[in-house]
């Protein structure tokens, strides 16, 4: 992946600190903040950070908090719409389905970011990425008359704005 070789140490240290803080926050959420438990929590967060760095080396990508909030809101709204969409199609007297496949180009390079984006896209209404081939993704749609590829491109722009390289 790009950007690992140059300036590896500061990137790595910063990514490690960021992830350790996230994991410690998750520990507090599931385990509580009793003083006696904190050393164990710190050790657990350290172990989780070690595993995370080993499994997903930092790429130097940065997160814009405000764009992240916008992205989260977008996908929450998307998953509500998706739920209603499925409910409407399932409960209608006649099944309102027009399923089929659509291919769409992907701008994100292969890697963790692209995988995460596809996971988010599978929560969007009527679309389910099933196969990635090179730089295109094959999407199964409940209704191929919907502008699935266009929506996907808009989501990808939002996603790339949130996680940007330095």
């Amino acid at each position: 992946m790009s950007g690992i070789e140059s300036g590896q140490t500061p990137n790595r240290a910063r990514a490690a600190g960021f992830r350790a803080a996230l994991f410690f926050a998750f520990w507090l959420a599931i385990s509580g903040w009793k003083a006696a438990d904190l050393p164990v929590g710190l050790m657990a967060a350290a172990a989780a950070t070690w595993a995370s760095l080993a499994l997903m080396p930092p790429t130097g990508a940065q997160v814009r908090p405000r764009a992240l909030a916008a992205l989260a809101l977008h996908f929450l709204r998307g998953s509500v719409v998706a739920g209603f969409d499925v409910a409407r199609r399932a409960l209608g007297r006649k099944l309102d389905l027009n399923p089929g496949f659509v291919t769409a180009p992907l701008r994100l390079p292969p890697g963790a970011a692209r995988d995460a984006f596809c996971a988010l896209a599978s929560l969007a209404p009527g679309s389910l990425p099933v196969e990635i081939d090179g730089d295109t993704v094959l999407i199964h749609c409940l209704d191929i008359k919907q502008p699935v590829a266009k929506n996907l491109a808009a989501q990808e722009t939002l996603f790339m704005r949130t996680f940007h390289d330095e």
């Binding site: 599931i30 385990s31 164990v40 050790m43 657990a44 172990a47 989780a48 950070t49 499994l55």
Partner: peptide
């Protein structure tokens, strides 16, 4: 990583 945290917890 999350599983490690849950396991230790």
């Amino acid at each position: 990583p999350l599983g490690i945290l849950v396991g230790v917890h």
